[in-house]
Amino acid sequence: MTLQFKTEYLAQIRQRYFNSSKKQKSIILDELCSVTGFHRKYAIKILSKGHMNTPKSSGRTKVYSDTSIFHLKRLWHLMGRMCSKKMVAAFPVWLNYYQGKGFGPYVKNELLLMSPATVDRYLRSYKAQFARRKRTGTIRGSKNFQNIIPLKIFEEKESVPGFIECDTVAHCGTSLSGKFAWSITVTDIYSGWTNNRAIFGKGADETLSGIIKIMQLTPYSIRSFNVDNGTEFLNRYFVEYFNGMKGVNLTRSRAYRKNDNCHVEQKNFTHVRETFGYERIDEENLIKYMNEIYQDYLNPLLNFFTPQLKLVEKYRVGSSYKRKYDKPKTPYHRLMESSALSQKQKYDLEREYMKYNPILLKKELGRKISHLNKYLKNKVRVSVVENNKNAHS
């Protein structure tokens, strides 16, 4: 039997084979094997070849389009690389302002339908490349002031805004020598509302002046102000100022216990390090530029449009701890839901919220930071060249 005959014979019976019942298929296979001499399994294989035009792919059926995945990755960068739960909570607001090539109602609906687990699955291999470093410039303050300022009561759960934690972050590069920029971080435990301000040097006067300016911007009444044991806080000027404030308790955390000030320690990374990195900033004329970034772009973006998770319950099961969090909300929405704010405070806060567009804030913030980074890198390059010239002269 020639090969051409076998090919023509297979073409004749292939369609008849797949339109037949199981019993009829068995009879057709018996006939094919006796005529061509094929093995039965081989006959089944070659009969199925021309019939299945598109082979069935293994694994999970694809639900979301490639365009949606592309915009998901773009939004992750645009939204400050927040976690999946915060992204899903922020999508209803951010997507109203977002624009991009190929982005339309269909893609928007797909993004709104995504769960946090789905976002994690699509972004897992894309975002596993960012490391963090840790460095501290805190110098322990005098024991005299430690005795004056009481320790914070840690068992108390703050149910209203106004319980503040404060800390400083050094923009020193790889050396703590000389004078350089510091960032003050002030965060509210209840809502997560955070304000930052840059100062040049960490003297008592500079630190207190920066904190006073931050407190003037807070949209709620301050009830308690908690600090660490650094010399910028434990000093005469600081204690005298807060002793003169009615209704505000000045407290401190325990020395070398970062978890005592955990809320502001977390914001030191998300608000300061993720923005300015670990570069050395030792020019006083850059302080005004940093404060413009904080006040006009970064703080409004994170306070009004970036949801935060809040720990509701923590309990131990065996050797591990289980944690439960509430629904992600922005600090702005937590303050608006609080009964501790007056109607005037909420009205002023809402007017401030309506002024901003998160997409424009993020783009302008990126442009400002890029400009600062280029300036600092160029400064380092010039410094290296000058050092090499001096070494060869």
Rank of each mutant, 00 (worst) to 15 (best):
A128C: 13
I139Q: 15
L95C: 05
A117E: 12
K157S: 03
Y97V: 01
M82H: 05
R133P: 02
F130Q: 08
T138S: 14
Q99M: 09
Y97S: 09
K143L: 13
E155W: 15
S84F: 06
N147K: 14
K143D: 09
L123P: 06
R132I: 09
E155T: 12
G100R: 14
F145H: 05
Y106E: 05
L95H: 10
G141V: 02
S142V: 03
A117H: 11
F130N: 04
K86F: 00
R133C: 10
G141C: 03
F154P: 12
L95W: 13
A128G: 13
Q146C: 05
F145L: 03
K127Y: 06
N147H: 07
S125E: 07
I148Q: 07
L95R: 14
V119I: 10
E155Q: 15
M79L: 07
T136Q: 11
P92T: 08
G100E: 07
A128I: 10
A89P: 13
V119T: 04
M82L: 07
A131Y: 09
A89S: 14
A117C: 09
Y98H: 03
K152W: 04
Q146G: 01
L112G: 01
P105L: 11
I148D: 02
P116S: 03
Y122E: 01
G102L: 12
K134L: 13
R140Y: 14
A89N: 08
R135M: 12
N144I: 09
C83Y: 03
K134S: 13
K143M: 13
V107H: 03
V93S: 13
S125N: 11
Q99L: 09
M79C: 05
C83P: 02
W94N: 02
R133G: 09
K101P: 00
W94V: 08
Q146E: 13
Y97P: 02
R132D: 04
F91H: 02
K85Y: 09
Y106D: 00
I153R: 15
E158M: 11
L151S: 07
Q129R: 15
F103A: 00
Q99G: 00
N147L: 12
K101M: 05
A131N: 13
M82W: 04
A90I: 05
R133Q: 11
P92Y: 12
G80A: 04
